[in-house]
């Protein structure tokens, strides 16, 4: 196994995640694409951990942290989506153009 194959796989996953974030209209699906990006980051962490042979397994620990933070992010993100849905009767991102004043 070479290191590059994992990193390139991670890159592919990350790019697909970016694509999803940029093209999806539904906010839930945008969050889902963010999860894809986090999964790619995890692959990088674990691959580099194996590569570095870190005695403290720092890469693995941090991928665990990423999982935990990702779970928190989904929780908060979905709560916000829910709030937006309640207020605007829609969960579509492109209808949220309040940033244009």
């Amino acid at each position: 196994m070479i290191l590059g194959q994992f990193i390139i796989l991670g890159a592919a996953l990350f790019s697909l995640g970016v694509y999803g974030v940029l093209t999806r209209r539904n906010a839930v699906l945008v969050l889902l694409s963010v999860e894809l990006m986090l999964a790619a980051v995890n692959i990088n962490f674990v691959a580099f951990d194996t590569y570095a042979r870190d005695v403290t397994a720092g890469g693995q620990i941090f991928s665990l942290f990423v999982i935990a933070v990702g779970a928190a992010e989904v929780g908060i993100g979905l709560a916000i989506v829910l709030l937006i849905f309640r207020n605007r009767e829609s969960a579509n991102v492109d209808e949220l153009d309040l940033m244009k004043l």
Partner: peptide, 14 residues
């Protein structure tokens, strides 16, 4: 990323 990884790590075995 692909270009950077290939130039950076080449065929590093893990």
């Amino acid at each position: 990323i692909t270009v950077a990884v290939i130039t950076g790590f080449g065929e590093t075995e893990i």
